[in-house]
Design a protein around this nucleic acid. Structure first.
Lengths: 143, 143
DNA sequence: ATGTCTGCAAATCCTTTGCATTTTA
DNA sequence: TAAAATGCAAAGGATTTGCAGACAT
């Protein structure tokens, strides 16, 4: 992730906020800055910590992640453990993750083979079809 | 789902319990009976309700679903809403669901195209690879 | 100026844990 | 009868809500 690409992703996100008439506040800027620079999905709590914890309230993080999700800026994904992870919605490229059950190491898998299933679903009459797909396993170092 | 197939699935599940030295109790029999006869994944709470609610404690449902998951009798899947759904593990046939965001109607999609991704993950050195995949959309009647 | 966003506190929802009692094998 | 499972009560963790004050437009 080089600087100009992060900058671009940040600007794009800010534009989305403006288009939705959402205000450009300090917490929102900081959260977006963080999200564009990060390479794996993080929980609300991890994002809160990464921002300094005392800086902004956890509730604000939740509310903004929610707002970001609604405007399509971030993707939320529920995990095996029941807690959700968030990542910037990389429109350009759709991928999934493999997550180690023990150390929670996370790596990208840069293919998405679910297109056929989505087609099946829309053939059944469903619209706005999206999916949540995560792979779980035990990584080499944890085995 | 005809009677003999339910019966068979029930017996198979009971056998798994015996093999794991888990005891065959009233709540477990009732829960399995329910699970084999049901066609879509249900939450712990829904299962509890379906069993009569006063019959057994919700905690018992949770503990048994957990035990069943560990012995491979049921699959647990986290959902967009943060709550988990459970279904009998149909070893014979792997499939996923499409869930309506509004009415929560659930239908099976009888293909799984994720095999390639799992292979990718094991090539990365991960073992015991499994996945969670759910599709979300808005069904015809809700649109 | 006004409607939106924030922080704080408290509530809610789902799930888990502790412990005394009952039940299964 | 010993180990495991249950029920009840209470704790826990993640997320949401209410409301008064602060801030962006």
């Amino acid at each position: 992730m080089n600087m100009s690409s992060s900058t671009h992703r940040f600007d794009t996100a800010i534009d989305s906020l403006k288009k939705e008439r959402l205000r450009i506040t300090e917490p929102r800027k900081a959260l977006l800055q963080l999200l564009v620079g990060v390479s794996k999905p993080l929980s609300a709590d991890e994002l809160h910590e990464a921002l300094g914890a005392e800086e902004f309230d956890l509730v604000t993080i939740y509310r903004n992640l929610d707002a970001f999700e609604n405007t399509g800026i971030v993707n939320r994904m529920p995990t095996e453990s029941g807690k959700s992870l968030y990542e910037l919605n990389a429109e350009q490229h759709h991928y999934h993750h493999i997550i180690c059950r023990k150390c929670h190491r996370t790596e990208k898998l840069d293919t998405c083979e679910v297109v056929k299933l989505e087609k099946l679903a829309s053939d059944l009459g469903y619209s706005e079809v999206t999916h949540v797909l995560e792979l779980y396993g035990v990584c080499e170092t944890c085995r």
